[in-house]
Design a protein around this nucleic acid. Structure first.
Lengths: 357, 357
DNA sequence: ACTGCTAATGCACACGTGTGCAAAACCAAA
DNA sequence: TTTGGTTTTGCACACGTGTGCATTAGCAGT
């Protein structure tokens, strides 16, 4: 990529100090105390001086220093949000929900990526703590029990969203989607269409939802009196939990699943399903005529591709909003409630009865 | 959506004060000054005490208070990033690039959405300023000339990414893709395929890139000795600049463009192109056999849909990285360089020669 | 022991804001 | 005018950290 460039003028004079309440006080001929109170609409200040000071502050272009306020009040009105991947169609909706609620509550959001690496996750949380955020949200956390003790030590209200850690810990709060139910819905849909040889495609990059969805898959088959053959289940090795990686896993897994003789595949997420679809397209396999595919998440893309993907919808924005709401409760010293959200089956065009054969 | 919930134990005892360097000083029997210096590896401190203090800090679980440091040093090591939409496949890649570079430079990122609303954009920037961020990045800014003066007054280094504001302002820095060139590449590709009646589909929600890409479109046609008919150009009314909105615009625009008799459409972005593709699918119009479609941006989705979309690639992550890099330069008192990045044509399967008719 | 020098430490203030408490100003009633 | 009460204001400290400057400790040389 070529890049032309143009030099612009050097940044102006050395940045002069911002004006403070002390400056306003000097001009108004009062103490900084009075200014502070006037700006905060304290009843201790007479109507007249308050008006005068507020007007003056406006004219002088005063912007309160949130840093100084934070130091004094010991509240930063700030939260930290850690996600495994920022450019992820699922997580970015969660982020959106969080930011929406946070902002309307007057909180600013620090965003940081962990790349699905526990060490980076810890580093990010430590940075949040150093900045004295009022609360922390972690999406797809891979936090270990031992670090949870540290989290307990620093005593920052924390809410996990769809945690991927296996160990539970009563001190942490969480919001999650019912993976087991979601998987059952998907598999029961395939069963109802007449499929009997149904495959499951998962990824090690998100171990907990992988396991739970697998259990839901097994439970649904068991309810129908079926026992899944071992080769119907493909769990792919993966690290970074990125969309690209998931698509790749999907593409690579198709052959193995076809060899196992399945007529339908339930995927741990939509991106893996899209990988399957792409691989089908390459080898000229018709979906859903020759193979049915079900995803999980219901990202926007699922309805735009062809065939539009049958999938299990997670309430993505709601997940973010709710997690932030729980955090707000915690910040207001209320007890936190953990939530399990119900997913929902969205039938589109990637599923059909199995081929007659 | 149903939601079951479980009450978890109330948050522990009232949050006790965090330990400070004063606490460490008390335990170590030295002044807080010595502790501060020891932790900062000041040469004024003897090797022995430094080791002792650092060890002690570790044992006591000390985490420096970034707020207090910021107040003292007048640097927060923090930047603000304002985007029109968080859950946007193009912008989320930009955000990713920004966060990546910021984090490796030890800066934390405040993320906020403006919903393509100038007033919200200003509110977000004022909040950033209140928090005394060291710098500000704005993607797809719609900032007006009058507010730029305010930006000048508060003197926070600012870099715009693909600014949508028409008024230039020499004090602001920016990074952008060459819209004109991108449009030319797209249209020249269609011309080379033999198309003569080529439509342009734009949106008012991003006025500047709309205009520039339109100009590129016109220039390319002009070079081929063609003059676009007025009805070949469809500029849709839109407000929020969200992906959903763009898709809708695309779906709604198809009929009009077909009536105008075009054999190919160049779209202002990929989501609009996807809207066109969906509308084609609904009415059974074959792409690219009966209509060629070119997008702009090259979001991930473009390669996953069918037919895979021919489009103009913007270096999305690079745009974010570079903007952050420019901001870093400004923070280090170096002069900022503005950058124009070159886009690149990516030919996939949504374009073909026009039908023989 | 004294001097002079260097290394190590601490005092005191600064950053900008919020607030308890004392002081001042004001006002009404006696 | 004095008293008592209310309203309004300001002093002084706190929040946690960094740093200039003075001070002290340590040490070698005479």
């Amino acid at each position: 990529m070529s890049s032309s460039s143009a030099t612009s003028r050097v940044a102006g004079a050395k940045r002069s100090r911002e004006i403070s309440i002390a400056d306003i006080a000097r001009v108004a001929g009062v103490s900084h105390t009075t200014v502070s109170r006037a700006l905060r609409d304290s009843p201790l200040i007479s109507e007249e001086t308050r008006k005068r000071i507020q007007q003056l502050a406006l004219e002088m272009g005063y912007t309160p220093n949130a840093i100084a306020q934070s130091l004094q009040t010991r509240r930063t009105s700030t939260i930290g949000l850690a996600v495994t991947s920022i450019a992820d169609p699922f997580l970015s909706e969660v982020v959106r929900g969080v930011e929406e609620v946070a902002r309307s509550a007057g909180l600013s959001v620090f965003l940081s990526a962990t790349h699905n690496d526990p060490e980076q996750e810890i580093a990010v949380i430590e940075t949040f703590h150093r900045r004295r955020v009022d609360g922390i949200l972690v999406a797809s956390s891979r936090i270990t029990g031992e670090y949870k003790q540290r989290l307990d030590q620093i005593r920052v209200p924390t809410v996990l969203i769809n945690s991927q850690a296996e160990s539970q810990y009563e001190l942490l709060h969480w919001v999650a989607v019912d993976d087991l139910l979601g998987a059952r819905l998907a598999v029961e849909h395939l069963l109802a269409l007449g499929h009997r040889a149904i495959g499951y495609l998962g990824t090690h990059s998100r171990p907990r939802s992988c396991r739970q969805r697998l259990e839901g898959y097994q439970a649904a088959l068991a309810s129908a009196g079926l026992v899944p053959r071992e080769e119907w289940v493909a769990i792919m090795a993966a690290e970074e939990a990125s969309p690209q990686e998931d698509v790749l896993c999907g593409r690579r897994a198709l052959q193995r699943l076809l060899d196992a003789g399945v007529t339908a595949v339930f995927c741990q997420n939509d991106m893996m399903a899209i990988g399957i679809l792409m691989a089908c397209y390459r080898r000229g396999l018709a979906v859903p005529a020759e193979l049915s595919v079900v995803g999980f998440d219901d990202i926007e893309m699922a309805s735009y591709i062809s065939p539009p993907l049958t999938t299990v919808r997670q309430p993505r924005i709601e997940l973010g909003r709710l997690a932030m709401q729980v955090l707000l409760d915690l910040l207001h010293e209320q007890e936190g409630r953990n939530h399990v959200l119900a997913p929902m089956l969205v039938v589109r065009e990637s599923t059909a009865p199995p081929p007659a054969s």
